[in-house]
Simulated assay, not measured.
Amino acid sequence: MKIKSHEIFQCDAGWRSFSFLKLVTDDGTVGWSEYNESFGSPGLSAVIEVLMPNVVGMDPMELELINAALATKSTQSRGGVVRQAIAAIENALLDIKGKALGVPVYQLFGGKLRDRIPVYWSHCGSYRMRNAELVGTSPVRTYDDMTKVGQEVKARGFPALKTNIAIEIDGQITAYRPGFVVGRGFPERNWDAFIARSAAKTVEAFRKGCGPDVGIMLDLNFHFRTEGFRRIAEAVGPTGLTWLELDAHDPKSIALIRRDAPCPIASGETLLERRDFRPYFEAYAFDTAIVDVIWNGFYESLKIAAMAEVYEVNVAPHNFYGHLASAISAHFCAAVPNFRIMEIDIDSVTWRDDFVKNPPTIEKGDYILPTGPGWGVEVDETGLRKHPVKQRG
C-alpha cells in the first residue's frame, strides 16, 4: 500500500475556517485529518502542498519513517507551520493505518484507558458575545447574560467551562483581547484595576449561574505580560478557579506566576514538539500542560504527554476546532494515563455538523469515544464542498 494522492479542503466556519486533508492510497483507502490555518498559521496549506511530494509513494504504515523523512526537509525551520503541516499529514496517515488494520487509532498505541472523555465547554459565553448570529443563540450583552449561560452549562451536565475576560463599556460587555486584536490594551498589554475587576466580575457571573461544583477556567491567552498575569491571578483568586490559563513564551515567567498564584496555572497550547515543552517542564511551570494534538500530531502529542508524566503533570488537549479534530483529541485523551479534561466548543456555527456524517455524542458532560476504525469519524465531502470559505469583515 502506497500513498497515491491528496486533496485539501478549506471550509467556512463563520469567524474562522476549518481545513481538512484527504490522503488516498493506491488501494483506495482514504485517510482524513483536520487542521486549522486561521488560528495564527498563515500559509499552512501551502506548506502541506510543498511537503506532500515527499510522502506520495511511501507506505502509510511506516509512520516513523515518514516522520523522519519529513524532518530532513525541515531541519532548519523546525516548529511553526512546518510542524503543523507534518502533524496534519501524520494524523491523516494514522487514519489510514487504523482503517487498514480495522482498529481505532488508540488501539495502535496500547489501547484505551477510558471510553468516556470528560469535557469542558470552551469559549463559554465568549462566542455568544462576539458571534451570536453565526452561533444561532441569543447574544450575551451583560454579566447577567453570562450568569444565564452558566445556568445552561450546569443544566446540561458539563463538569466545567472556560471563558475569557469581558469588560463593560456603556452598559454592554465586550471581549478584552489585546493579544489578538488591535484595540484597547494593544500593544502594551498592561493591566489596570478596571481590567482586573472585570476579570473577577466575569468569573463571578458564571459562578453565580453554575454554582460551586462546576469548574471554571479563565483563559488570558497572550493578553498580558508577566506583571499583568500575576495581578489578574490575584484578582480572580477568591473565585475558586479550576485553572487560570495563559500563554507566554518564557518558561521562567510562567513558573514565577505559578509560584505565587492563588489558583492552578495551565499553559502550553502554542508550544510545538517535545523540545519546546522541555524547558517548561524543567521549570515546573505548569499545573496542567495544554497540548494541541492538531498542531503537534497525535504521535508527537503522545510523546509530550509521556514527558509530562515524568514531571507529575497531567495534560489536556487544546481543542476548539471541528468534529474531526475533537475525535482526534479524544483518541489522545483515551490513550494517555495522565489525562485531565478535554476542551470542546459547544457553541459553533450552525452548519458544523455538515462536515461529518456522524457528529459526536456528548452525554452528561462526557464525550463518547468513537469506536470505528481510524478516527471513527466519517467526513462528508458533500458538506465540505457546500461551505467554501467566505470573506467576512
Rank of each mutant, 00 (worst) to 15 (best):
I3N: 04
E7A: 11
E7R: 13
F9Q: 00
A13N: 10
L21F: 00
L23G: 10
L23K: 08
D27P: 09
S33V: 02
N36Y: 01
S41W: 05
V47T: 09
V47W: 03
E49G: 06
P53A: 08
V56I: 15
M58L: 14
E62M: 14
L63T: 14
E64C: 08
I66C: 06
I66R: 08
L70S: 03
S77K: 14
G80M: 07
G80E: 09
Q84G: 08
I86W: 10
I86E: 01
A87E: 01
I89G: 04
N91F: 06
A92S: 07
L94K: 12
D95Q: 06
I96R: 06
I96E: 09
K97N: 11
G98Q: 10
G98A: 11
G98R: 05
K99R: 15
G102M: 01
P104K: 09
V105Q: 06
Y106W: 05
Y106D: 10
F109I: 02
F109N: 12
F109P: 02
R114Q: 12
Y120P: 04
W121L: 02
C124A: 09
R128F: 10
M129V: 13
T137A: 10
T137K: 11
S138D: 15
S138I: 06
V140N: 04
Y143E: 08
P159S: 03
I165E: 06
I169C: 12
I169V: 15
Q172K: 15
A175S: 15
Y176V: 02
G179D: 08
G179K: 07
V181W: 12
G185H: 10
R189K: 13
N190W: 12
F194G: 02
R197Y: 11
K201L: 11
G209H: 04
G211K: 07
M217Y: 13
L218F: 04
L218P: 01
L220D: 02
T226K: 12
E227L: 13
E227Q: 12
G228S: 01
G237Q: 06
T239D: 09
G240E: 10
W243D: 07
L246P: 01
L256I: 07
D260T: 11
I265F: 05
E269M: 09
R274L: 13
R275S: 15
F277W: 06
D287P: 04
D287T: 11
D287H: 14
D287S: 12
D292K: 01
V293I: 14
N296R: 07
Y299G: 02
A306T: 05
M307C: 10
E312I: 08
P317E: 03
L324Y: 02
L324H: 00
A330I: 07
P337I: 05
F339R: 03
F339L: 09
S348G: 12
D354I: 05
K357L: 15
I362Q: 02
I362D: 02
G365D: 03
I368Q: 13
W375G: 07
G376K: 00
V379W: 05
D380S: 11
D380I: 04
E381H: 07
G383Y: 01
L384N: 03
R385T: 03
P388Y: 09
K390Y: 02
Q391N: 12
G393V: 14
